[in-house]
Design a protein around this nucleic acid. Structure first.
Length: 538
RNA sequence: GCCCCUUUAGCUCAGUCGGUAGAGCAGCGGACUUUUAAUCCGUUGGUCCAGGGUUCGAGCCCCUGAGGGGGCACCA
């Protein structure tokens, strides 16, 4: 123990006392009556922080900066392990390295200290010998706390048991952790804390880090695949005058200078198609959209969509792209196309995503489940009766197409475990999709379901401005009749279509849900770093 | 919005019949020159989520509320 620990200067005491009091407004228990140093003898959170802050003060008093500005490392730990990971046990080398990371574990053993240091992708053991670093440095290293960031100069070695290690010659504190780490072995399991304090979750939970690595790999895979196909990545407005392109309630916000109500976007669709009108031919955007709806294991109010639009294509081509994007993302993120799909009941279904995906019309799935042929051209009373028979509640204003969708969702959706393209949605529920070339009541549309979750949605884009206006007017009429999620007439979008949009195939993929599938997690919060939560009470 | 579950030390968790709070880790003191969730000895640490109520006595029973989780509804 260094002399300074027991005998801090008055200035340090003042400093330390201020911090302590600010963190604990009520330090009036008996232990504080004797002296400041007695605050260091407890082991509550406040006392633990106080001890660590005290160490900071000692270091500063000794002229050592505990928060230096930079550290130049020669190797990441991944690189070090790749280079020397196969050394024989008991090897000493002359290879000098400089590595950096966070102290995760510490094992003091007499005149040796072993510590495990981790950087972003790997960890390595530090081997500290009193005989090598000297008494003073050994004592200082012994003062390190779990969680501290350190930079280390040393040589590569392996221990008798074969553990790759850096034999420390010089160790520098890069940043002091003044708050104790969560449990070193069991991590952090309280989900509230995990989501609110994601930093702590990432420090101690390998699974959390892995899920976000998968998410990153999926998104970068998409960018590569799309770049290879000649798609251009664009960014379109988040603040919208009209919240169009999907059926959803928007968030409302306000611009002060323009004194104008604005909506946060609920989809990327209408702006991207304007770019197809403008001749950009192949565009995509990976962007945040916002829907003012409930929160669940599958829904976060803000989530990430990838939408793409391809001129001269139709929905069948877009289905091919969908499959290619997702299969490649699986390879790039988890190294295989074999996944265990976890259904809402928690059962795992092994599945090879690389197998061709089933394509089935929505009306055929409904017929399969009910034994009755259905079609949007049928009278609404007939379909309402069918819905009643299967316990599906209908609202009076719903037409035949909407009722078919409701029956599909109630009866068929839960059986769609393996990747399935559900196609041929009724026109009524697809205001931006082009009518089927063989059936005016259906659209050339598909939704991809995996593990009963909807992952993607695409169609042959409606490019007839007259037809689009009529569809918008139906949406507006439904909205005026009280259906808050229906759309409005977007005059600027219609003007764009009037300039002429080439035949176009479009696609939207829910990136969060795809990341869930490939990461093998059952809650969307596991793939969103900072999910929406109620405010924490401090 | 509704229903169910949950909340105990910094972290992970026990807590029996209602009798006044425990363990492991972390921390602190000590031993140890090849450990690795190091080990061993000693030791500090509690607004039992909050507020009411019942009771001689509440972590435990009752009521209300809050956070979180799951489900339903809504949706992608």
């Amino acid at each position: 123990m260094s002399p300074g620990r027991m005998n801090i200067s008055p200035r340090d005491e003042t400093n330390y006392g201020f911090v302590f009091v600010s963190n604990d407004p009520n330090p009036t228990d008996d232990s504080t009556l004797s002296s400041d140093s007695s605050e260091l003898s407890g082991s509550g959170l406040a006392a633990e922080k106080a001890r660590r802050l005290d160490r900071l003060a000692e270091m500063r008093a000794a002229g050592v900066e505990p928060y230096p500005y930079r550290f130049d490392r020669t190797h990441t730990l991944t690189e070090a392990r790749a280079t020397w990971g196969s050394l024989e046990p008991g090897t000493e080398t002359e290879h000098a390295v400089a590595i950096a990371g966070r102290v995760m574990l510490k094992r003091e053993q007499g005149k040796l200290i072993f510590a495990t240091v981790r950087d972003r992708d790997d960890d390595i053991q530090l081997f500290v010998s009193k005989a090598v670093v000297g008494d003073d440095a050994f004592a200082e290293i012994g003062q390190l706390d779990l969680g501290d960031w350190v930079g280390v100069h040393g040589t590569i070695m392996t221990t008798r048991k074969g553990e790759l290690s850096v034999k420390v010659e010089r160790l520098q504190l890069l940043a002091k952790a003044v708050r104790p780490m969560p449990d070193k072995w069991r991590g952090l399991s309280d989900v509230d804390t995990r989501f609110r304090q994601r930093y702590a979750d990432l420090i101690v939970n390998d699974e959390a880090r892995r899920a976000f690595q998968v998410r990153h790999a999926v998104i970068s895979s998409f960018r590569r695949t799309l770049a290879g196909k000649g798609f251009i990545e664009v960014e379109t407005p988040v603040l919208h005058m009209e919240a169009g392109g999907a059926h959803a309630r928007p968030f409302i916000t306000h611009h002060n200078a323009l004194d104008m109500q604005l909506y946060l976007r609920i989809a990327l669709e209408l702006h991207l198609k304007r770019l197809i009108v403008g001749g950009m031919e192949r565009v995509f955007e990976i962007g945040r959209v916002f829907r003012n709806e409930g929160i669940s294991t599958r829904h976060n109010p803000e989530f990430t969509m990838m939408e793409l639009y391809q001129a001269f294509g139709d929905y069948s081509e877009v289905m091919d792209i969908t499959e290619e994007l997702i299969v490649q993302a699986a390879r790039d993120s988890i190294g295989t196309t074999e996944v265990d799909i976890i259904d809402p009941h928690g059962n795992a279904h092994h599945c090879d995503l690389a197998k061709p995906w089933r394509k089935v019309r929505m009306i055929d799935l409904v017929a399969e489940k009910t034994g009755v042929e259905v079609h949007p051209s049928q009278p609404v009373e007939q379909l309402r009766a069918l819905a009643d028979k299967h316990g599906v509640r209908c609202e009076p204003r719903w037409g035949s197409g909407k009722i078919i969708e409701e029956i599909f969702e109630a009866l068929a959706e839960s059986s769609l475990i393996e990747p399935t393209f559900v196609t041929g949605h009724p026109v009524e529920i697809s205001p931006l999709a082009r009518a089927d070339r063989n059936d005016p009541h259906l659209t050339e549309r598909f939704e991809l379901f995996v593990g009963t979750r909807e992952l993607a949605n695409g169609y042959s884009e409606l490019n007839d401005p007259v037809e689009q206006r009529a569809r918008f007017e139906e949406e507006q009429a439904a909205k005026d009749a009280g259906d808050a999620e229906r759309g409005t007439v977007d005059e600027d979008y219609l003007r764009a279509l009037e300039f002429g949009m080439p035949p176009t195939g479009g696609l939207g993929i829910g990136m969060d849900r795809l990341a869930m599938l490939l990461a093998g997690v059952t809650s969307i919060k596991e793939v969103i770093l900072f999910p929406t939560l109620r405010p924490e009470v401090f």
